[in-house]
Design a binder for these strands. Structure first.
Lengths: 334, 334
DNA sequence: TCACAAATTGTAACCGTTTACAGAGTGCGC
DNA sequence: GCGCACTCTGTAAACGGTTACAATTTGTGA
């Protein structure tokens, strides 16, 4: 079942069949109709490898993430796949697993397969590898990395805005001792959140004593330990750099018998799937992963790739659930 | 940079280069060495599309899952990817999202791309689609579906054994009223677990009154409600059909102030990532997803595909954490 | 009605491999 | 020394599309 059979049945040349499939405008409607009929009758599907070989376009996109096991990524991957297949692209997902070697492998796999674009949704990416992709002429889009360049777009998340939303929410609830659980400072995104905490807290005339800051490593266990360290400082609220550490903090509080939110409020960051199922449900700053995926696709899609890439900024959204509440105890009615 | 340049540099024909790359045995060691040197010098990577076109082998495997957002799947996907790339295969992951239309799309995408094998790790798959894949001559491997057939292998998980491990663990802990939170009975895997509960409970002379059985829908919310319904029946232990519903049950107990495991024991099923981070950490029956992935790859790998597929059985493993304990209250030492 | 331009379709080269087949070289037995 | 069987290598035809270019048809204005 190849293009020749279709051509024969439609009584045209293979060129016309190809043109009908790819750019219907260059073909007379009557001819096109005959060709489409033949295609349907024969249940013809063009061979993608032949197509890629001769056109040079693979119609495959690469997606590089850290680790599909990290709950931040599944939503991102799913949304990216959805938009890609809507546009008849296939996607190859690769996990760096935070290892430089593995990352190199990811890049070379993608380059070998001649993907038409690469979305790099992990922050660990050596500049050398970015250059390698640029030399290969592949459009790329990153999340929170450097500035755009040649065929190189960037999506930036307004983390600082997210932290502001969180703190202002707490301030509105009359909190005055707001602690912060940091993420790993080698991650730019974690660093931005921490600095924003410092800045916004000062703007609101809150203490940012170093005793109100703990390291949560962006993990549940880290958040647990951090919360334990924070407890003696009597904060009335805690902002965590991500949901995982907020969940760890929640566990620590539960174990210590501290009630949330009546005695202490907690806000996470990310809005991973699980956050709406914690007890109490976690108030958090949502990173709009579906939107990021859509933008990433758009950045890579051939009709919008220009020599000089663009930069997009996406806003976070405060999702208020049940882990935050007023710092002022309701007085018993006399 | 193509095979001709390599051939020229090594002073051989393109055929020899190709042979060196694909089956080193047909080439003199000395010649092969020259070719490899040229390949290295020129940093040559064969064009996979040309290769696929002419050989008919795409070196791509398809993986069909329900939904990457379901915490059961990330581990499976990751392990599958790992073993595939070790063998220089690429993998395309597709999500059915539990929708028949989307499932059809998944299958046709994979078939169009001429994948060399398909691992179907979701239970919702119409027989018609299986036939379609078989007609296309693609080896397939399923999880818990029917019996193997032509180029069709199956991996079966010993769910019944898992349920037995769970119940015997509880019986060993002197529990006598063991409730069960069921999954959706249209899922074969959930049905097997439920039937095994009934059987094993009877074998151990435990009540299996229908009031000790609740529907948890395999979700957190479902497990929450199910536990609430079960509570008045005073079970001393609960086995849930999956971890998600066990976590929901845990939340219900926490909210009602029932202590786990001192007042009530809970066992989940699956061992999703999150289970080791619940409070208390969840005792559960692990489904060995990495092993399943390895077997799935082996079932598909060309050197082991025979006309008639195989069937493999994998055992579950009871992971004892902190949500289960003795049903007998320790007497205060006098 | 005719010349010429524009629109549509056909011909065939090409994309970069693999592989059937043919040819060259080597070693061995007689 | 010669023929034969093997082993190794080269030639060239696929694989199934796309696309530059040529050929044909159609439409237009004088």
């Amino acid at each position: 079942m190849d293009i020749k059979k279709v051509a024969a049945r439609a009584k045209v040349s293979t060129a016309t069949v190809s043109r009908t499939i790819n750019s219907s405008d260059a073909v007379t409607p009557a001819t096109a109709a005959r060709v489409w009929a033949a295609i349907r009758d024969l249940n013809y599907h063009p061979n993608p490898h032949a197509r890629s070989l001769s056109s040079g376009k693979s119609h495959i996109l690469g997606l590089i993430i850290s680790d599909i096991t990290n709950p931040f990524f599944p939503d991102l991957v799913k949304a990216f796949e959805t938009v890609a297949i809507e546009h008849h692209y296939e996607v190859i997902v690769t996990n760096t697993e935070y290892s430089p070697d593995r990352t190199r492998l990811c890049v070379s796999r993608l380059l070998n397969r001649k993907v038409e674009g690469i979305a790099i949704m992990t922050s660990e990416m050596e500049p050398g590898l970015i250059e390698q992709m640029q030399r290969a002429g592949v459009p790329i889009v990153t999340l929170d990395t450097g500035l755009p360049g040649r065929k190189f777009s960037n999506i930036r998340v307004d983390y600082a805005g997210g932290v502001r939303q969180a703190i202002q929410h707490l301030v509105g609830l009359h909190h005055e001792r707001i602690a912060f659980i940091r993420g790993p400072q080698r991650l730019k995104s974690a660093q931005i959140r921490y600095e924003a905490y410092l800045r916004v807290a000062k703007q609101n005339a809150l203490t940012t004593s170093s005793s109100l800051i703990a390291d949560g490593e962006h993990t549940i266990d880290g958040g647990f330990t951090a919360m334990l360290n924070l407890l003696p400082q009597k904060p009335t609220a805690v902002v965590a750099s991500n949901d995982l550490s907020a969940i760890g903090a929640l566990h620590a509080l539960q174990q210590k018998g501290v009630r949330v939110p009546s005695e202490l409020s907690i806000i996470g960051f990310d809005d991973i799937n699980f956050s709406k199922h914690t007890l109490p449900e976690l108030t958090t700053v949502r990173i709009p992963r579906a939107e990021i995926s859509r933008l990433a696709f758009e950045a890579l899609s051939s009709n919008s790739v220009s020599e000089h890439g663009k930069e997009w900024t996406v806003a976070t959204e405060l999702v208020i659930r049940r882990s935050t509440g007023s710092s002022i105890r309701p007085r018993p009615t006399v």
